[in-house]
């Protein structure tokens, strides 16, 4: 690690222009070489199918008939008038709007709780990571049992405490909350780890200095931890937003979109339309509307967090 010692800021480099020029050129070439494999794979396995799906979105395409007719923007126009599609968008956004902040706060909280390096903490970290590993189908079954209106544990406990009971899975108004709880349960441990990694990048001497200055724990959190964690927070926020709006797997296993379609998210709607109703063209158009919305949201989020996250 001899290299570390010879650190010199770029601007003060006292080397010839010739060198910097070749530096720039080699950097460009290297950059291209480094992304080339990924770029090739991206084009073949993601872009090519995406473009085809985009073309399909302008067609009336019955999945099993192989007959395709070009119908222009009809699919898109009809979708904007489709009550079920609009409702599915609402369900997806409701899920995202609750999950992104709540899950973020819970996983950051867990990370702060277990931040210090100790045996006990690493034991608990492993336990909190277990929900990430366990099969979603099994977890969903257990949650179904717990939630069950007349037979579930949750209501047994609530009744014992003389609290009002809930019926997550059979009440269209609250069913999505049941999905949300399962979602957070399943993913919080994972984002806890991402936050832990971010927290560990904050130099300890900053806290020491703050301590010397007499700053309390809470002030330390707001004036050191949060600002220095901004990059990680941005990352988690963008990723969870995309994932949350694309929610489908949890819905399939927990509610199947019911009751009365109240948990049918957009991706579930797309799947149903494509593979059960077999209207592939219509489903593809729905997917691209969702795509456009999520892309815009992501770009806005990136702008908002711009000070730390480029692009």
């Amino acid at each position: 690690m001899e290299l570390k010692k010879s650190i010199t800021p770029k601007k003060n480099l006292s080397i010839s222009n010739k060198f910097s020029m070749s530096y720039g050129k080699s950097e460009k070439l290297a950059g291209i070489a480094f992304v080339l494999p990924i770029a090739v794979l991206l084009i073949i396995f993601m872009f090519y199918p995406m473009i085809q799906a985009f073309i399909i979105s302008f067609q009336d395409f019955n999945l099993i008939s192989q007959k395709k007719t070009f119908i222009g923007f009809d699919n898109y126009i009809n979708l904007f008038k489709d009550k079920e599609f609009i409702a599915s968008l609402k369900h997806s956004f409701y899920f995202a709007m609750v999950v992104v902040p709540v899950q973020g706060i819970i996983s950051l909280g867990l990370a702060l709780l277990l931040q210090k390096k100790s045996r006990i903490n690493s034991f608990f970290r492993t336990i909190y990571f277990i929900p990430v590993v366990i099969s979603t189908a099994v977890a969903a079954t257990v949650f179904e049992l717990i939630y069950s209106k007349d037979f579930g544990l949750l209501n047994a406990i609530l009744e014992a405490l003389h609290l009002p009971t809930v019926n997550f899975l059979s009440n269209p108004d609250t069913a999505m909350n049941g999905v949300i709880i399962l979602g957070i349960w399943k993913a919080a441990g994972f984002f806890m780890i991402i936050f832990l990694a971010g927290l560990n990048n904050i130099p300890a001497d900053l806290y020491e200095a703050a301590h010397v200055d007499g700053a309390g724990k809470i002030r330390q959190f707001f004036s050191i931890t949060l600002p220095l964690l901004k990059r990680t927070i941005a990352f988690v926020a963008i990723i969870t937003t995309i994932d949350a709006i694309k929610l489908s797997a949890l819905v399939y296993v927990l509610t199947g979109g019911g009751p009365s379609g109240s948990t049918e998210t957009t991706v579930v709607y797309i799947f149903r339309t494509a593979f059960e109703q077999m209207s592939m063209g219509y489903a593809s158009a729905a997917a691209f509307i969702l795509f456009a919305i999520v892309l815009i949201i992501s770009l806005i989020q990136m702008k908002l967090f711009k000070s730390d996250v480029e692009y």
């Binding site: 019955n62 999945l63 099993i64 008939s65 192989q66 007959k67 593979f275 077999m278 592939m280």
Partner: peptide
């Protein structure tokens, strides 16, 4: 249905009878 869409279906397949009309109508 994915295999049918790709034009690569099996020779013989099981189909649930109420869906028959959809498959037959599509020429699958």
């Amino acid at each position: 249905r994915t295999a049918l869409a790709a034009g690569n279906p099996p020779d013989v397949m099981a189909i649930d009878s109420p869906n028959l009309a959809a498959y037959a109508d599509a020429g699958a």
